[in-house]
Design a protein around this nucleic acid. Structure first.
Lengths: 340, 340
DNA sequence: CCTGGCACTCTGTCCGTGCGAGTGCCAGTT
DNA sequence: AACTGGCACTCGCACGGACAGAGTGCCAGG
């Protein structure tokens, strides 16, 4: 019915006005700023229904209405189209990210760019090791019985790990080891690397077996260790903007959660690269994220994203704009890493 | 005279009380909490003199006194001994930093540790490239005319850079290049690496000269580029603690300055590893750092520090305690990086 | 089903007052 | 000469009442 439809229109108007003004919005202001074709009194009736259904709420009697988490959810799901970025914005993204010299630089620029575009806290995950492939393995002798293993992936990520060997190692062995490792692992997805180890140890010349086994073990350990999944965070200064208005109490728990990383990593684990994931307020099921929303998407191939990136901000945020920015940056980062 | 001495004692008492209570401190409270052996009235006279000399000030008539930047300066220079850490704290540092698997991990742990010990924002600089020596140089072919150069330093730092070559390169050339670069640069301090380039190009076989020149140029560029001097920052949540009390206005400009990094890097450039550097409030000559102090020290060899680490907090901070923590962590990090 | 009108409720703000903390000064004491 | 106790004075701040404004819910009428 036209009935329900107008009610949704009212909800959309409330969300939009509240996001831009940060004031609870009343029926009169709504009628003035949007031509809904009905009077404030009618809007009041609609608002009463919306409130009963749990989409909006009033901070106190006789203040305007404010969207609830559920209201934002409906808005995101049904009432908003992802706003396309302007040409200028697209060019800005391009100009900003081109000229990055290495992976660290790409991610650093991305996070700054995202923070700037959305005026929120931006979060970028390093490409997951498990989904990258080995480009090169390097073995460097650090001490007589100590090797440094350096792994370079096709996404440009570099990981190092020191390996203590049971016996002293000579130069020849190091060279052999390097050749052996590279021929075994080159081009192999890291997630499959574990399977190769038994064969590798098997096929190694007798005098190298122990060494190969030790080194492989460390290598696998490096890959499996998920705690090492790194994040780059930026734009935290944006939290200090709307100050007491946006977050209940202080931003402290949020900052702590961001530094912990583990919460964000768990959220990031759910992204894929085709649809933008939006988690609103309580949906995050984490105390520190009360009042905060999380907009994220994967970058890289659609089915198997390399990693995720996104933003964290108050539930009262410009969802269409932020979703667009996140998606655009993710696409660009995906391209950059695919071809490097 | 005993006169001046007591006045300084009063200043010390004011600083200590103000730091722990966060309230402007009055003559009566001072007389009660410290046995200065004189009455409040006498202390009032001393305070009047201290105020005239610019060491303390009152926020408004008839409030207690608060130390000025100049007052803190005197306190740090003449009135405070660096407080030795408790055995438990020392052990905590050791336990926390041992078990770090690589450089990134060492620095990450350091910054968290420092933030936790001081309850301030902690900042740790990566070991300066220019003062490290080459442990290994690796060349990996990424595409026909594209090489990736990976530099591993004796401090465990790994830098990568992609080099576009004028001509296609074959496998043999890559191997030769690797050998050439390593024999030329191995063990060389990066700051001296530039001097080696002409000789290297000279001595290279004819067919490699162009390649060697191109690659060396990129290498040098990587080292010289100071913008790439990285920082790890942690404990920003501590800024949201004392809230409006500690910083004028908001913490926003401070957070922005920290993210910019350049301000902090400039401050870090001045550290050496033997004395703890304290910059108080206005001394930092930077708007965003008004009301903020910076406590830092270098780590590594005393005369040639590898990098710096420190904390940023409100001028109203526990200088002796923080100086001790910063120094202790720096020493430990210095040891760790020296032996790895 | 919508609209205009009306009474009601609640918050944020402004202002005036009183209180307490702290000072500066002065006369008196050692 | 240096210190002390006393006293009058100055402010900022917290408390409380009054007020205006915004917004609502409801009802009767179109």
């Amino acid at each position: 019915m036209a009935h329900d439809e107008r009610r949704l229109e009212v909800l959309r108007a409330i969300v939009q006005d509240y996001v831009s003004s940060n004031d609870p919005v009343g029926s009169k202001a709504l009628a003035e700023r949007h031509d809904l074709g009905v009077s404030p009194a009618t809007i009041r009736n609609d608002m009463a229904v919306l409130e009963e259904q749990g989409y909006i709420t009033q901070p106190h009697t006789s203040a305007g209405r404010v969207p609830t988490d559920k209201g934002y959810r409906l808005f995101v799901d049904r009432l908003s189209a992802v706003k396309p970025l302007s040409m200028a914005e697209r060019r800005a993204i391009e100009r900003f990210l081109d000229g990055a010299v290495d992976l660290h630089d790409v991610l650093g620029r991305s996070v700054r760019l995202l923070a700037q575009l959305t005026r929120q806290v931006a979060v970028v995950q390093y490409p997951a090791l498990s989904r990258s492939a080995v480009r090169h393995l390097e073995v460097v002798q650090v001490a007589a019985a100590r090797l440094m293993l350096v792994l370079i992936t096709d996404t440009g990520r570099v990981e190092q790990r020191v390996v203590d060997c049971p016996l002293d190692v000579d130069d020849g062995a190091v060279a052999e080891l390097r050749t052996l490792l590279n021929s075994a692992f080159n081009g192999v997805k890291l997630i499959d690397a574990g399977d190769k180890v038994p064969d590798l140890v098997e096929s190694a010349p007798q005098h190298l077996r122990g060494l190969v086994a030790t080194v492989s073990a460390t290598l696998i350990e490096t890959l499996v260790e998920p705690s090492e999944d790194r994040l780059v965070i930026g734009g935290t200064a944006n939290l200090a903007r709307g100050n007491a208005l946006d977050f209940p109490g202080t931003v402290r728990p949020l900052l702590e959660a961001l530094e912990e990383q583990v919460v964000v990593l768990r959220l990031m684990a759910q992204v894929d690269a085709s649809t933008v994931l939006v988690r609103i307020g309580e949906e995050n099921a984490h105390e520190a994220l009360t009042g905060a929303s999380f907009v994220s998407v994967g970058y890289g191939k659609a089915d198997r994203p390399l990693g995720g990136l996104g933003i964290v901000g108050p539930t009262r945020m410009d969802y269409p704009g932020n979703m667009a920015a996140v998606r655009a940056v993710a696409r660009y980062v995906g391209h950059l890493l695919a071809e490097s």
